[in-house]
Amino acid sequence: MQITYRIAKYLKVVLAVLLLAACTPIGEPATPTPAPVLVRVGVLPFMSNAILKIADAEGFFVEQGLTVELVPFRSSNDFVPLLLQGELDVAAPALTAGFFNAIARGGNVKIALPLTAFTPQDCPVVVVLARKSDVEAGKYASPAQWKGATIGISLAGAQGLPGYVVDLFLRQAGLTAQDVTLTALDPAVQGEALRSQQVDLLYAAEPWITRLLAGDDVVVLSRAEDVAPDLTSSFMVYGPSLLAEPEVGRRFATAYLNAVRQYHEGKTPRNVELVAEYAGLETELVQQVCWSDIPLDGAVNVDSIMLYQEWLHDLGLLDRLLSADEFLATGFVEVPE
């Protein structure tokens, strides 16, 4: 028993090295022996993730007796594996097929809280952009005219939520993915690609929308909230450690929702300062851009996830369809009656 265990451990190390060498940057080295209330959160340099910074900076985590370590990442690619391996306790991974497949294959990760949602507000957070000249020439007057267009989308997005939203736009116009060409674009070059006519349309999110609209040659064609109102577009996901300790999970959720409450005060100087500092953006830009809604009540729009999941399944990306209780954890948010 002893020996097999040790062999297994050794094997794990060797294989982990193999895997590392082979393909994926796993990221930060593991911190040794987490104290019971140390919660490690994988965060991305996006404005939405600044909510965690608010909770941290305003002492909401400390209030709940939690020591939270925000571990910065550049992409959410490796969040699910890191959660499963216990390297992280919480993170907001993009909801890719990998998330669902990990669960289908026995991985213990679950959605605990909503992050952003496509709540209709007076400004859009996710849109499809077009060249102003095209729109003025009447090119996209009706959605059906998207037929034949080349649409720029982030590489990660094409087979994820952005791809789904684009598909919703197309469906609305009676089109399918076959009617357009999706082109993977790095956000840094998307504006250039649109202006130089390498793509006709662009799926874009804040703060890029504000940046691109500043050029005055680009206009918003459609808003995500129109085709997918109230879709929950990103989530806080708990790994096995927090799922096993509902008490810590609840305290984390409480601190998180306290931060959401402060976030809902809007662009107060304090919030602007924290978001700008966290996302590494200029204060003016942070003031200008449209801030995503983060649901105050901590409720996840399950129907929207089911629909999205079906879309992934139709693309052949999923091992199987999951039921809601397989991917959604309940009981962390105290619902005030």
Binding site: C23, N101, A102, R105, L155, A184, D186, L318
Partner: peptide, 20 residues
């Protein structure tokens, strides 16, 4: 892996994306 939708690198990327 960075930017293509086809090719072996894209397959690797997709495999990781779907955790297959």
């Amino acid at each position: 892996m960075l930017s293509a939708r086809e090719g072996l690198g894209a397959l690797i990327w997709l495999a990781w994306q779907t955790l297959r």
